[in-house]
Design a protein around this nucleic acid. Sequence first.
DNA 1: AAGCCATACAACCGCGTTTTA
DNA 2: ATAAAACGCGGTTGTATGGCT
Length: 299
Amino acid sequence: MGRIPCCEKDNVKRGQWTPEEDNKLSSYIAQHGTRNWRLIPKNAGLQRCGKSCRLRWTNYLRPDLKHGQFSDAEEQNIIVLHSVVGNRWALIAAQLPGRTDNDVKNHWNTKLKKKLSGMGIDPVTHKPFSHLMAEIATTLAPPQVAHLAEAALGCFKDEMLHLLTKKRVDFQLQQNTAANYNTAISQEEKDNTVEKIKLGLSRAIQEPNNMMPSNQPWDLSENFSGTSSAFPTLVSGFEYSPPCFGNEGDGSLSWNQKLGDENGEESEGGKETKIGSSMFNSECDLWDIPSDNLMNSMV
DNA sequence: AAGCCATACAACCGCGTTTTA
DNA sequence: ATAAAACGCGGTTGTATGGCT
């Protein structure tokens, strides 16, 4: 019963792949495809586990992968999608052509989380820390609130020291940005926004073909911009507003401005980049569906 | 120049689900 | 029908690299 093992565990090489191994694997897959990972290392003359081969191929060798820096538009995409689906890296990566779940996860953990934290935004909930603190504080008795505030200040002090000593953050810009986000919208609007995003994703999962025309560029703008939605305008290059907060005033600080343009370079392509995903395409009106339908297909 | 530290990312691990002998 | 391997995914670790002291 059962299958044959994928490899002889004690006879497999581990650790970094050499260029020779990469060549062997790539040329074998080019000829025979990826049908059977168990046979691939053996047939390709590799002393590797099939699983290791699969990871190497999917995360690094696949010819359709991008290997360069993430563009601003891609970063915005990740943040927006993360605010909706959380750590569902494969789901997020599926919306970013040429990026793998591993890429996205690494980029999130090494860069984006810190950027958001530096802006005073909790990368888990995508809410401002101040907002979270206020929420927690409402559940506490006054003496406990004082302790909470003290503890929070201690945490922020360390963070601030870290940021300042690293000299990597334009402090002034951080303040502006944080102020921008802290201009809160009503709780009702926030809830609405979250519901709408979830609904859009739910529809996308249910009707991928309708939601994702093959030749249509990603465009969140029709559904998420303007006054009817609390969801931010996510067009014109570098704008970013976490979905929980909506656009306030002109809301026009650029992405680079808001996050502190670390390298001063224009985003990849440098053009008006419509971000978000085709799952939010304007073909269907996401907002007209009863919210009962929403969560069934989520998660 | 050497040691230390932070960062980025490739690779591995573990677990739940799916597939198949 | 069942058991065991393959698969897919998220979390974690290991290591190469570069900057700073």
